[in-house]
Amino acid sequence: MVPAEPTRTTQLADAAIAVLAEHGMRGLTHRAVDRTAGLPIGSTSYYARTRAALLELTMDRMVELDFASAGAEPSELAVPDIHAFGELVAGLLHSMLTTGRVRMLARYEFALEGTRRPELRAVYDRAGTRLREPTVRMLRAAGAPDPQRQARTLVAFCEGILFDSIAGVNRENPPELAELLAGIRELLHGMLHAD
């Protein structure tokens, strides 16, 4: 089956992610997105009239790509057992460290700017909630005694690995899938089998 052609908004959002990752928040302009997408000047403005609309379009696309990496929409994410859960999480981390690296750099730019601009923080937090809710649900299904708190711990662990491997001291030596899986399994085992 031939993959569907990307929509114009998808094309623009992907270009905005690339611009954010390469040039930071200050470099993200409608014209820069037009150039990166290879489209006529004014194309981005047609679909996202304001900078806020462009940022929201970009964050929505990042979340969409995250769920595409998982192979399911948030409501459909489910795992039959804790081993499958560990494999899902490790696979997502590995994907974000490899094919999703640019997206993660863009996300960091977005997160930092959100600390200074409340309207961005709201967009970022909404996206974060969409990503965290399935984690709580899957931990609950796996028998976690405090899934809300434990989801926070699991997400923080994952975010630490990602930051260390993309922007931190281990950016030249990111973990392989097997190492990620071992770490996730250790963490999940501790959460679910603690006395």
Rank of each mutant, 00 (worst) to 15 (best):
D164Y: 04
I41V: 15
A37I: 03
Y46N: 09
D164A: 14
E176K: 12
R130F: 00
H193E: 13
H193Y: 15
L28E: 03
D14A: 10
A142W: 07
V79L: 05
P174D: 11
A18P: 09
R8I: 15
R26M: 13
D81Q: 08
E64F: 12
A78P: 00
Q148M: 13
A122I: 11
A16W: 08
E186W: 08
A78Y: 02
A127K: 05
E176Y: 01
S69C: 12
A90D: 01
E172Y: 10
A141Q: 15
P74C: 12
S165W: 08
A37G: 03
L97H: 08
T98K: 10
M191P: 00
A151C: 05
A122H: 10
H193D: 10
R121H: 10
E5S: 13
P74Y: 12
E186M: 13
A127H: 06
E113N: 11
R149Y: 05
G114H: 00
P147V: 03
E186G: 08
L181I: 07
R116G: 12
S43R: 07
A72Y: 02
E87H: 13
G27I: 00
M1N: 05
V79Y: 02
L92Y: 06
H30D: 01
R140N: 07
R107N: 11
A48F: 15
F110H: 06
L177E: 07
P118R: 06
T44R: 05
A178R: 13
L112E: 13
H94Y: 14
G86D: 08
A122R: 15
A32I: 03
D14P: 07
T9Q: 15
G71M: 08
A16I: 08
E73T: 15
R121F: 10
L55C: 07
D195F: 02
R117D: 11
R35N: 02
A52L: 14
G100N: 05
L192E: 00
E133M: 14
E73V: 10
V102N: 00
V89E: 03
L77F: 09
E22V: 01
M138Q: 06
C158K: 09
M62F: 07
I184M: 11
G100L: 02
A194S: 13
L180P: 00
L55V: 04
R8Y: 04
A144G: 00
R117Y: 02
F85Q: 02
L55N: 04
R117F: 00
A141N: 12
P134L: 02
I17R: 03
M191Q: 08
G128F: 11
L162D: 02
L39I: 01
R49K: 14
I82R: 14
D81W: 09
A15C: 10
T129I: 12
N173R: 15
L57T: 06
L28M: 12
A141L: 11
A72F: 05
M96W: 02
T36F: 01
E133K: 13
Q148I: 14
N170K: 10
A4Y: 01
L162N: 00
N170I: 01
A122T: 14
E87G: 05
A48P: 06
L77Q: 13
T29Q: 06
R61L: 03
L105V: 07
S45W: 04
P145I: 09
L97W: 04
P145S: 15
R149A: 14
L177N: 00
